Simulated scan of single mutants.
Amino acid sequence: MHQRLTPGTTVLLTLPPVMWAGNAVVGRLVSGMVPPVTLNFLRWALAFMFLLPLAGWVLHPASGLWSHWRRFALLGLLGVGCYNALQYLALKTSSPLNVTLMASSIPVWMLGIGWLGFGQKVTGRQLIGIVLSIAGVALILCRGRWTILMQLRLVPGDLYMLAASFAWALYSWLLARSREPAQWRDNWSAFLLAQVTFGLFWSSVFAAGEWVSIDAHIVWGWPLVAALLYVSAGPAVLAYCCWGLGIKRVGPNIAGFFANLAPLFAAVMSAAFLGEWPQLYHAIAFVLIVGGIIVASRT
């Protein structure tokens, strides 16, 4: 039985979108200091170190992790290896506000994947929600000028973020198809460490490919170290903890609405740290996307 939404639970569910929005801003700030795919690897390597004291038993041969290695290898590929790497790649050419707004289309991908791949029925309300959300995404892509859709040339970052959103939606559906023991699902640090263990393999392979294919370099210094500590301890570990505790209290339906606060926080942070003030079309797109999600989520 889920509890009512209390002030404490509200704080728990508000902290993750704040940290995720900060992740987008920080990723943009350090884009000239470290290659994006390498940033993703370093982020999760530090997160692995943070999680190790909390759930190091997961790596034991008798923990049950290795009997589920295929599942966690796929979850690690989508959630750790692909999603965040694509997000950081997107931030090379797209703004944090655009990236977080594009990520707000994830529920639309979830509906489509659920219908096509998992036999999930789509209601009339959900179809209306899809139309509204797609209109919001289209508004971002055309930068507020609908005539551009006739001769649309996408910024590479927009395409990367669409791919990242698809990967996250598929990852979320696979999470819903639980096959691991109950004690894994009830221990957020163990479940996350299992994914990060395999995700580190994928992200290291992608990072190695990045260094082979481009003239990669890292500008070490306190700004980069501070950024790495934030993106690993905050968005990669603490946000997962708060999100998991919040969902346990009120369920995923109510918690899902809080995820859409990330674009609002990203707009504030971008204005404060990057001087990238949001435009009117950002506000309209935000209303369309969130409105579509609200309509689609109602039963």
Score class of each variant (00 low, 15 high):
32 G>Y: 02
99 V>S: 14
87 Q>I: 15
146 W>S: 05
32 G>K: 01
119 G>Y: 09
36 P>K: 06
123 T>K: 12
72 F>W: 07
99 V>E: 09
65 L>C: 08
33 M>D: 10
78 L>V: 05
85 A>W: 06
51 L>R: 08
114 G>I: 14
153 R>P: 00
160 Y>H: 05
141 L>Q: 04
100 T>L: 07
123 T>S: 15
120 Q>W: 11
58 V>N: 13
29 L>Q: 06
99 V>Y: 08
147 T>H: 13
46 L>H: 02
150 M>R: 09
105 S>H: 13
157 G>N: 05
111 L>E: 10
156 P>N: 08
69 W>K: 13
152 L>M: 06
118 F>K: 05
39 L>P: 02
115 W>M: 15
62 A>W: 10
151 Q>R: 04
143 R>F: 02
48 F>N: 04
102 M>W: 07
40 N>W: 00
79 G>W: 11
146 W>D: 01
149 L>P: 01
93 T>G: 10
86 L>H: 08
117 G>L: 15
143 R>E: 05
50 F>I: 15
150 M>A: 15
57 W>R: 15
40 N>P: 00
142 C>W: 00
148 I>N: 05
63 S>M: 11
39 L>S: 02
55 A>V: 07
59 L>A: 13
77 L>H: 03
58 V>I: 09
153 R>D: 10
61 P>K: 14
73 A>E: 06
49 M>V: 13
39 L>Y: 01
83 Y>T: 11
160 Y>C: 11
33 M>W: 04
46 L>E: 02
127 L>P: 02
161 M>E: 10
149 L>F: 03
46 L>Q: 01
127 L>W: 10
143 R>Y: 00
